[in-house]
Amino acid sequence: MDTKRKKFIKKIIQHVLMIIFTLIMLYPLAWMVMSSFKQSSDVFVDAHTLIPREWAFHNFTEGWQGFGGITFTTFFRNSFVITIIATIGSVISSTFIAYGFARIKFTGKKLWFVLMMLTLMLPYEMVMIPQYVMFSGFGWIDTYLPLILPTFFGVPFFIFLIMQFIRTIPTELDQAAKIDGCNTFSIFFRIIVPLVVPAMMTAAIFSFYWRWDDFMGPLIYLVTPEKYPVSLALKLFSDPSAVTNWGAMFAMTTVSIAPVFIIFFIFQRYIVDGISTSGLKS
């Protein structure tokens, strides 16, 4: 009885600690959401409280009006265009490359794989200037090409993730397909792709989040405000020469994270499946 009681008390303590840590981690998000309903002048005056003294629902309508006649409808459309196309490109290209590394034998395979993995260790600041010079020479500045086109040549993290998943698939399936007359592409499309859907969905979710949240890329390559995504448009609320509308800024920030939450909660099971099995090998 004492042992059961100790286990019961231990579980209670664990749950209490988890609840406390969860509340601590969620507090900044809750503060941002509740600040979107506060008057702009009360955001930092009542920063210690979550509940607004006066609910300002007009923050959302004011924020959605945007700047200079450009509404957030345009900014959201730009974000979806960049994010969706880049996500499709990164997942498809990474799956092709991962299949090559996992199943196809070719000269210099280990060398190319090592070089690909080394790119994961390069900080973005190290390649930022060379990339800008290269894309500027191509005449791609103030276009979406620098933000989208590179994803069609594979993303190293996704390649490694999907490749590890492919390695869990028995090679006997490939051999059986070859006996039935399938070539390399048939094996890829008919056998490999249907089985690696969890890993592909995991890559798609990560890609969607990274591209939607990307600030540095659009800041470097985009000049025309009409082409700004949401991540860059939110910066326009902060104006050192005028009074910043904090309520509207927090309102649009709250709206901007909604797509990420929706995607995550709909496809979260694929994240668990994709990551939990990608490290296993048959």
Rank of each mutant, 00 (worst) to 15 (best):
I162F: 13
V114M: 14
V223M: 13
F189P: 00
L219S: 11
R211P: 01
M163D: 13
A242W: 00
F158M: 00
L173E: 14
T143W: 06
F237A: 01
M121Q: 09
A203G: 00
W112F: 15
D239C: 00
D180R: 13
P229F: 12
F135D: 02
S207Q: 08
L118H: 06
G139N: 09
I220F: 10
T224E: 08
V114I: 13
D214W: 08
L122Q: 04
L118M: 15
M200E: 02
F138V: 02
A233M: 03
T143I: 09
I159S: 03
M116F: 09
S241Q: 09
I179Y: 10
K235Q: 12
Y221Q: 04
A199Q: 03
L115R: 04
Y221P: 04
N183V: 07
N183R: 14
Y132C: 00
Y209L: 08
P150L: 11
D180E: 15
L115E: 05
A199V: 08
M216Y: 07
A176I: 10
V197G: 06
P123C: 02
L115H: 09
A199L: 02
M117R: 06
L234I: 06
V196K: 14
L120R: 05
A199T: 03
C182W: 14
Y221E: 01
F208P: 00
Y228L: 03
L236H: 10
F206R: 02
I191W: 09
F208L: 03
L115P: 03
T184S: 07
T202G: 05
T143E: 07
L115S: 11
K109F: 12
F188T: 00
L118V: 08
Q164F: 13
M117I: 11
A177H: 06
G137F: 06
K109I: 06
F153I: 06
I162Q: 11
K178F: 15
